[in-house]
Design a protein around this nucleic acid. Structure first.
Lengths: 188, 188
DNA sequence: GTCTATAATATGATAGAC
DNA sequence: GTCTATCATATTATAGAC
């Protein structure tokens, strides 16, 4: 009879995600990850033989799944484009706690010149987001090339607002960005 | 007769800045800072008794000085607003190596909830940038409130483009942002 | 599957010689 | 002002008991 898990994969990943989001990859020590999850370091290595690097990659994989379940469907359904962007803003607002949390894709990105598996996962998620928003922009009447630009601008504003909100300790920057977001993608 | 300095403050700060920009505050170990500057760890402590924290703060102070010497004058002179924004784009392009370097204000920001002297310095630089761009926007005809929004949006796009350029390993995101920048601030 | 104990190394930081 | 040597602690990671 094998010992029962103290914590299931889903919950484990959520707690790891929270720490990484809070302090970033480098500052997330195994000690802090252990404390946050309630699993001793040796147990974490049992669940993630690849250590911290693997934990980060599974966190990214889980994030992608959450997007696939909650965000991408909202952008791909049959609703009119303005409805999609309203849903997008709502989901994004919740996802980043109204500008009070950092972006995983940012804080987990390895330094330039040290690209690895994480980098690929991150670039791929950015690309998925860009593609989904591009579709919405095209649905709103933008020609293909312009739709790409609009989607890119939306992601740029989204992530820039998170940086400024944190750097200026002012989440209202994020809120104002949210009001601009739909218009950026929908403008024809 | 005191020993001569192996490296002057200016050059020392430049090398520290390069490392911090490259890997961020947490991943910048004293070992790496020592190697990059050519000064042994004990010598770094002689120049910066406050250790890594003080190095980061002096790097931020030096960055502010560079902005005060090169960027703010270009935004405050008597040139027409579109000339100012063209200069701004050129300086910013050089400052971030056309999107191939990260933003110090981002990589030196402490985690939320761990604000310190660095946080204050960072917020203050963001504010200075915002104020300067707001002046330009007002000079281009925007009423005060809208000018603030436009300046903020410009900074949001600037920093978001750096995130996406790195995350997608594609500096062209930064280039496209640069083409939008003047219009954001100048639009009436 | 989780734990205690431990290892090997890296880290930030200091003392004291030159 | 810079250096070698050293310290205490923190870090990632593993071995082996239960």
């Amino acid at each position: 009879m094998p010992k029962p898990r103290k914590i299931e994969d889903d919950e484990l990943t959520r707690k790891l995600t929270a720490i990484f989001k809070e302090v970033g990859y480098d500052a997330a020590s195994l000690a802090s990850l252990s404390e946050a999850t309630g699993l001793k370091k040796a147990s974490l290595y049992h669940r993630f033989p690849g250590g911290k690097e693997q934990m980060a990659e599974e966190v990214l994989a889980a994030t992608r799944e959450i997007l696939s379940e909650h965000l991408f469907p909202a952008l791909a359904d049959a609703a009119p484009p303005d409805r999609k962007m309203a849903a997008f803003a709502t989901i994004v607002d919740a996802f980043y706690a109204s500008g009070n949390e950092s972006c995983l894709l940012n804080v987990l990105a390895p330094p330039r010149g040290q690209e690895n598996g994480r980098s690929v996962a991150i670039a791929s998620i950015f690309q998925q987001l860009s593609d989904a928003l591009t579709q919405v922009a095209e649905g709103a009447g933008s020609p293909a090339e312009q739709a790409k630009i609009r989607a890119e601008q939306a992601l740029v504003e989204l992530h820039g607002a998170l940086i400024l909100s944190k750097g200026m300790a002012d989440p209202s920057v994020f809120q104002r960005m949210l009001t601009r977001l739909p218009g950026i993608v929908l403008a024809a």
